[in-house]
Amino acid sequence: MSDHTVEPEFSYDQFSRRDFFTLVGGVAMAGTFGAALVGSFRYMWPNVLYEPPKRYKIGPPAEYPVGVNFIADQRIFLVRGVYGLRDNEYRVVSAICTHMGCTPKWVQKDDRWECPCHGSQFNTLGVKVAGPAPRPLPWYEVTVGNDGRLVVDQNKVVTADYKLSI
């Protein structure tokens, strides 16, 4: 109401009950909008996904023989007991070529994966040794689930020296 040059000093006397009500009411409204904003943000964060799960179960460890096992449903290789692993040790590597997404084939006699599409080759560490593939094959975390079956988590890419010991 008054000119801003003659603004009065603040005092508790002048902070009336009216002002208090206005202030608290205003804060409550702001809090409400805050809740609405938080809620809206949380709302946009999906809880369920309509896509193949990235973390999935495969069979129990004993089901897979020593060597390189191809698991077709999930397109992964399960390596057990070879190339620096003991019989009770497991590793999982993606079976999707990093070049164009074909499925590389395990060639036992040469100890390497060969992609049938454009000839990329990956050694036992998943590292490209020939062909156009831009990146090594990723290794995934594999653990033992509560029910004793192996659980692969593709969200967790690990280094080639990762191994699961049972």
């Binding site: 949380r42 709302y43 964060w45 999906p46």
Partner: peptide
């Protein structure tokens, strides 16, 4: 139904 069962704040919205 997803809004009801699986989405946070879906019901209230």
């Amino acid at each position: 139904k997803d809004l009801e069962f699986a989405v946070s704040f879906g019901v209230v919205l």
